[in-house]
């Protein structure tokens, strides 16, 4: 397809798609200066490289892109190249407008067919993982090609089809991000990463869904893998870490039992005391007394 640019507010083709801020293909035959200067926008920008090699800066960091790679630029992130240079090659891109919620989460608008929980999970994935290069990601090229064809073809059902493709684009990007950070091979390493994140915020009321999303797995597979690897369900494994940390804190006299309970993620000192006693046979205060005594 030849190069083109459609922009919201200027191009009639986008009238039915207010969520698409910009879409296009660019082919560069000779090096151009001042053609790609750094900009910051409110939209989510997705660039797919067709040919050539590009050196771009995202958030002041330089990244190199090859054919098949995707550059992902989150809303509000500066993006461009040094001196606005555009190297020889071609790429295609889209810029999507997303809603920003009060809690900082981003999510697609009413055009999307995604459910609320899916939307939330995808929004969280985009924000949590800073991953400006998604490599060998041909699916994005295919989806964008499809959107271009629908935009110019105007065949029956093209509006629904494009909205559907946009959802697919977000889904693929989110999946790719978690898969790229967790290679789906090394469960011990993935589990170690999870363990680290849990320990950093033990006070948080973690759910299985959140833990699974953190390592890019579905909850069913996640629960099964954790169980077979650790011998515990995810929640019981978490209780394990909580009690071990609590024991360490109980051995230091300066922190109150209530504070320990809340710091290690129990709802209340009562909840802490019950769980602790069930496992160790001691109430936390008794345990503390025993261990602070000289022997």
């Amino acid at each position: 397809m030849n190069q083109f640019v459609l922009q919201q507010g200027k191009s009639a083709e986008l009238l039915l798609f207010p969520q698409i801020l910009e879409v296009g293909i660019k082919k560069i035959g000779s090096i151009q200066l001042n053609a790609f200067s750094t900009t910051t926008t409110d939209g989510l920008r997705i660039y797919y490289i067709i040919e050539g090699r590009f050196e771009w800066r995202i958030n002041h960091q330089t990244y190199i892109y090859y054919p098949g790679d995707v550059a992902l630029i989150l809303p509000g992130t500066p993006f461009g190249s040094d001196n606005g240079v555009l190297e020889i090659g071609s790429f295609t891109w889209i810029q999507l407008s997303l809603h920003r919620l009060d809690n900082g989460q981003i999510q697609p608008g009413k055009w999307s067919g995604l459910s609320e929980t899916e939307t939330a999970a995808i929004g969280k994935t985009l924000l949590l993982n800073s991953m400006p290069v998604l490599s060998r990601f041909n699916e994005v090229g295919k989806i964008l090609k499809c959107i271009h064809a629908e935009l110019f073809g105007n065949e029956v059902g093209y509006q629904a089809s494009i909205n559907h493709q946009l959802d697919e684009l977000l889904i693929q990007v989110a999946r790719k991000m978690t898969k790229q950070s967790h290679a789906n091979r090394d469960f011990p390493k993935t589990f170690m990463h999870l363990e680290e994140v849990l320990r950093q915020d033990l006070a948080h009321q973690w759910t299985v869904e959140e833990m699974a999303a953190l390592v890019g797995m579905g909850t069913t597979l996640f629960t099964e893998r954790v169980k077979s690897y650790s011998g515990f369900s995810p929640i019981n494994y978490l209780i394990n870490i909580r009690i071990s940390e609590a024991i360490k804190l109980l051995k230091r006299p300066e922190i109150s039992v209530t504070d320990i309970a809340l710091d290690t993620g129990f709802y209340s000192s009562q909840h802490f005391s019950t769980t602790f006693k069930k496992l160790t046979g001691y109430r936390p205060s008794e345990f503390r007394k025993n261990h602070l005594r000289n022997k």
């Binding site: 589990f191 170690m192 515990f232 394990n240 009690i243 071990s244 940390e245 024991i247 496992l279 160790t280």
Partner: peptide, 26 residues
């Protein structure tokens, strides 16, 4: 029951005695 090994520095390999104890008990 699994308990982790921590590598806080390249040559280090450590385990948390309290976690080992709690895991054993559990």
């Amino acid at each position: 029951g699994y308990f982790p090994t921590f590598h806080t520095e390249p040559d280090h390999s450590e385990q948390d005695p309290e976690q080992i104890f709690i895991t054993t008990l559990y």
